[in-house]
Amino acid sequence: MIWSRQALDHLRADFGDAYSGRTVLVTGADGFMGSHLTDALVELGANVHAFVRATSSGALNNIGHLRNRLEVHFADLTDRTSIDYLVRELKQAPDRPYVFHLGAQAHVGESWHRPYETVMANTVGTLNLLQSIVDWGLELEKFDTAGTSEEYGNVRDDVSHHHDFDDAGGLILHERSPINPKSIYATAKVAADFLTMNYHDAFGVPGVVTRMFNNYGPRQNPRYVTGTIITQALTRETIELGNLEPLRDFCFCSDGVRGHLTVAAHGKPGDVYVYGQGENISMAGWVEMILRIGEEHGFWPAGRTVTTTPKRYRPGASDVMALRVGHEKLTRETGWAPKVSWEEGLLQTIRWYAENRERWIGRVDWLPTGAPTLT
């Protein structure tokens, strides 16, 4: 649980009136951000329906501790029949449900290796859910589609005058900044965003889009950059990474959860909201910060080194070089602002990986020291 007792008290004070006793559906509820959002909603007293991708094992990795406090639906966004069963059940709810749509294939690199799955899950899956809601006449309080900062890509010269820059020339991305997706993942997310707006305009589905900037924290798949840095540092002397030049705006997962809760409770249907830390750091700076914090708190010894390898670079010219959010709109309309510093968030994240080795060691994309190699 990422929430301290005090943080939970603040969460209930801020969102208890909106969600206590309310019916809520979370797709991707067993994923990284979905599980933290599900944790928060259960603590707020919501009647949570957790949409979890159906597998033969039916395992719950991140919300198993909540099994008796919510209703789990094993379904699949790409299987329309399973979605229809779920939406038909939600029709029996005594109120208008909230839908938090976080279910997705969310790894940029994986989208090049699994392009069809990415498009099917992220785009067709969103279409299936929206169309089922319309076909069954399910009236909603809000439908929150989780977008991504990756949708903005890089600045194109011909539209650079539509972007905002700070006095030092640093790019700041807002809700209306031009989009330029540079990966299959980002393109599929753009499509999901626009489908959400299409169904709002055509059928009155109260959709909002929340574009999140680089969430990180406990439970995140170790193949994402923060996790791959930490898990390698915990296990071996050399950390192997890709391009160290891109700038990223990292936002701790509890602030991300508060962003979703805020937009769903107070956002205007048909609108887009962005949020993140509001500052960025190079990948070189990020790994340096992680190594320093882990060393200072005794999680690994001094002397960890960093190397780059072409196999970890994004293909061709698809890398996104600078992401930094301007969350003034959300802050102005709702008062939302990030609360967790990078230092605090990274310490919590490092501690989780250190204490939960069995949760990630079989999922890493690097070879642990001393592991046998296949010849």
Rank of each mutant, 00 (worst) to 15 (best):
N47T: 03
P115V: 01
R357D: 04
V364C: 09
R363W: 07
L86A: 02
L195V: 05
L261E: 04
P218C: 03
I172Y: 03
V87R: 02
A202V: 08
H297C: 05
S82F: 02
K91R: 14
N122C: 03
Y275Q: 14
V208M: 13
I133P: 11
E279N: 13
S341E: 06
P94W: 11
T331W: 01
T23F: 02
R22D: 01
L41Q: 06
N243Q: 09
L244A: 02
Y273E: 05
A265F: 05
K142F: 01
W366T: 05
G217Q: 04
E89C: 05
H10L: 15
G58K: 13
M197I: 11
H162E: 12
D271T: 12
L291Q: 05
H101K: 09
V325P: 07
I230R: 03
P368K: 12
F15W: 06
P206Q: 10
S57Y: 11
T196W: 07
V108C: 10
E296P: 00
Q277L: 13
H163Y: 15
T375N: 15
A146Q: 12
G227F: 03
V364F: 10
S341T: 15
N128Y: 11
I172N: 01
E288A: 12
R332Y: 10
V208W: 02
G45T: 06
S177P: 06
G169H: 11
I229S: 04
A40Y: 07
M321K: 14
V364I: 13
Y273I: 04
H260E: 12
D39W: 15
A317R: 14
P246W: 06
I63M: 12
S35W: 00
V205Q: 01
A188T: 03
R80V: 10
I293N: 08
P310H: 00
Q348T: 06
S57D: 14
F165H: 12
F51K: 10
T307Q: 14
A264W: 04
Y353H: 14
Y19K: 08
G242W: 01
P269T: 01
A192R: 07
G276N: 09
S149N: 12
A54E: 15
Q277H: 09
L140F: 08
A192V: 11
H260N: 13
F203I: 08
G335A: 03
L11N: 04
S160V: 14
Y185L: 11
V42D: 02
D255G: 09
T305H: 04
A93M: 04
M120C: 00
V108T: 13
V99N: 02
R236G: 03
A50C: 12
A46W: 05
L44V: 08
W300A: 04
E245A: 12
G28N: 03
W342N: 10
R236D: 00
Q6D: 14
E279M: 12
R12H: 07
Q92D: 06
